[in-house]
Nucleic acid binder design. Structure first.
Lengths: 135, 135
DNA sequence: TATAAACCTTGAAGCCACTTCAAGGTCAAA
DNA sequence: TTTGACCTTGAAGTGGCTTCAAGGTTTATA
């Protein structure tokens, strides 16, 4: 199959497939006589793993590590399990940070509403609150 | 004052200050006879506003918009208030997405634990779960 | 006085995971 | 025969910086 059909089976763009090849995540495929890339079912499986892992926010480096194990005929399951747990912890931490940020934004908005909105340079202004967040 | 002192007063790096200048957020400063950049208190105020807004995750484009109002002697407070509310909503939405992602990661991890960890290509493997997340 | 240490300058490249653009070549249907 | 959908490559753009390379300047110390 050609690149577009491969890409559609994994729900990614064909430019992304070319990018994965250029970054070494996908091997250079066979070519048809006219120079078009020619893929088979094993390429679909590999790309689906890449797409599934990317949709879980794994980096291409992480994915390369998983694929390298498989390519050496070592089962990557244990590594993948560890990565899932670690990524979940990272996301959890990121959520906490964003919750704090959201609270700061809402607090600033609420406080800002109590100030006049025609102060340009003075301290009597929501902009000044933003400036003085230093630390 | 020179660039490092300016940067320290706003808790940013001096390379970031140069970057802000190159992107038009900060105007080109006066120069000392030896060519070093020379800043004053108004530069500190401007940079603090930039740093405060960046710490709230505003883009440099957003910040440029705020500064453009101020530079035209129009009070940016109303715009800033609107941006605060909108940014808070964006963060809230992002938190929801990350919570869904975290749940998917934890669910996959839990389910993956029930599979053997020595399957390389077959369907009896957490990797296969990752591959089949398509959609 | 030599020299090291701390500061400053510029321009270019690197980061991440792509997308977009430019400038073509290939192939099937109407 | 021409339109349109597909394919190719290489380069540049995205955001907000940091890092690197290769210097010049100034202050403190030995």
């Amino acid at each position: 199959m050609r690149i577009k059909e491969l890409a559609q089976q994994a729900y990614v763009s064909d430019t992304a497939v070319r990018y994965y090849e250029s970054s070494g995540i996908l091997p250079p495929p066979r070519r048809l006589p006219n120079g078009y890339r020619d893929y088979d079912q094993s390429d679909v499986e590999r790309l689906k793993l890449v797409a599934g892992a990317r949709s879980l926010d794994f980096s291409l480096d992480d994915i390369a590590e998983i694929l390298a194990l498989r390519d050496r005929r070592e089962a990557p399951c244990r590594t993948v399990l560890d990565m899932l747990a670690q990524k979940a912890d990272e996301i959890q931490q990121r959520i906490i940070e964003l919750q704090q940020l959201e609270k700061q934004l809402r607090d600033l908005h609420e406080l800002g509403l109590t100030f006049p909105t025609d102060d340009i340079d003075g301290k009597n202004c929501v902009c000044h609150l933003v400036s003085e967040r230093a630390g």
